[in-house]
Design a protein around this nucleic acid. Sequence first.
RNA 1: GGUCCGUUCGUCUAACGGUUAGGACUCAAGAUUUUCAUUCUUGCAAUAGGGGUUCGAUUCCCCUACGGACUACCA
Length: 515
Amino acid sequence: MTRKTRVRFAPSPTGPLHIGGVRTALYNYLYAKKRGGDFILRIEDTDSQRFVPGAEEYIIEALAWCGITPNEGVVDGKIAEIPDERNPFAPYRQSQRREIYHTYALELIQKGFAYYAFDSSENLEAMRSEAESKGETFTYNYSVRESLDTSLKLSARECEERLQNGDQWVVRFKMPIDKTIKMTDLIRGDIEVNSSTLDDKVLWKAADQLPTYHLANVVDDKLMEISDVIRGEEWLPSLPLHYMLYEAFGWNDIRPNFSHLSLLLKPDGKGKLSKRDGERLGFPVFPMEWRNDKGETSKGYREEGYYPEAFINLLAFLGWNPGTEQELFSLEELTESFSLERVVKSGAKFNPEKAKWFNQEYLRKKSTDELVREFLPVLESKGVIKEFDYVASAVEMIRERASFVNEFWGLCDYLFCAPQSYDMKVKEKFWREDTPAVLDELIKELSSIDAFTKEALEVYLPAKIKERGWQMGAVMNSLRLLLVGESKGPSVADIMALIGKKETLFRLEKGLSIV
RNA sequence: GGUCCGUUCGUCUAACGGUUAGGACUCAAGAUUUUCAUUCUUGCAAUAGGGGUUCGAUUCCCCUACGGACUACCA
């Protein structure tokens, strides 16, 4: 039986989406689209303690910026809450599905696959620290479940009383003893675990009347007809539990295929990439800027000037490759080429340098007109108003030098404003005794040139220098110093022609008097 | 500590038993250039260690080392 490919991205709204999360979403999306399937967004907010306002909206907006459009789960930029033709399994927010999970939790108890546990958190804490003091680890499993206050030990009546009394309780999974659980991961292959090494995980918390991730995720994946689960490596240790849950519910035949993605690692040193690394090393860890409730902001790729296409491309290549030497892929091309077989097993260290390179490549693919439209608002913010064609000429001259549009201003401000200061190191290097006299003569002659074009100047300048026996480098760089203020930029003829005769003469005279 | 996952240039990775171990980023050198860039050329640089299996191991198996995840009434 082949069923329709349906994948889900199921983040928890506990903060902004991390780039590792975006990569997981991307791989899910690519996998589904490649197979003509559906990509579903589901919000796993079963931890009432860690809920962060705005995180859900952030997730939706971040995916939208990346061009990752869910087939299901989102309506008008919000999580779908009411079932309709497009969102048949709504609500897609787990906190709104508690009755569903409750029913299934009860079913497991009824079938004997789960039980009530009445331990107080203080009691559990005490048992943990006691074990720790003996150098052991407390494990809630077959060895204790029948001696603690659980429905396995207590009589049915006693249990009922405790439930009525409103005692603290949870539902725990009754993990079988000494059973070899054989699992398959599409990326990693076969994995085996003995069930005796596992513990009796909590499935339902009475305190907030919500399931834990394990129950909610298995139930929802079944109900939402998910065919493939592609998630982070941190879930690999709980895969055996999820297998056992599918078995307990009798859902083995519809159990999804599982794939666990390796983690994104710090660029330097050891360990997984964290928010701190971004701050420490100065690169964003989030797709978009995020401001927390303390008013602290974290940088975002969007605000740093990355194109979403570049961001997606670089993320795709962190743990996947097409097997060819092509590195630049649009979202469509990624969709076409993606396969889980080519996902790398080991963790990838994030490389900010390569990230910049990707954006540079995408910037180069843009037309000058597009770049001008991006640059115009920057100019406006600097108080510069120039006609489109002028800006286009400026962009044309410097576009090859930039990785981001936000570098443009620093690269060509002198094409819009006369230099405010002059680099004296450049003067030392190129200024000669006769330079003032030479420049004086040039100013006079330039003022009589009618066709002040790049072509004309390219002919005039070298010819004049040669005719007078001046030093090419000394003269040209001195001119550049007065025009630009430092030793950078396109050819002197280019600059003169663009800023025009009047401005050129003004700058040369002004500069000459100062330098 | 226990369970599980992983390990090819500094980094991302290719090579699914036979290659001078390839590409990209970074870095260095050279060429071009009136400057800074761009561009082009070249270079530096890796199979964690030890055992097997095999005519032959980066590739398969085992051990060690190292790294990582998990070990919550968090996801």
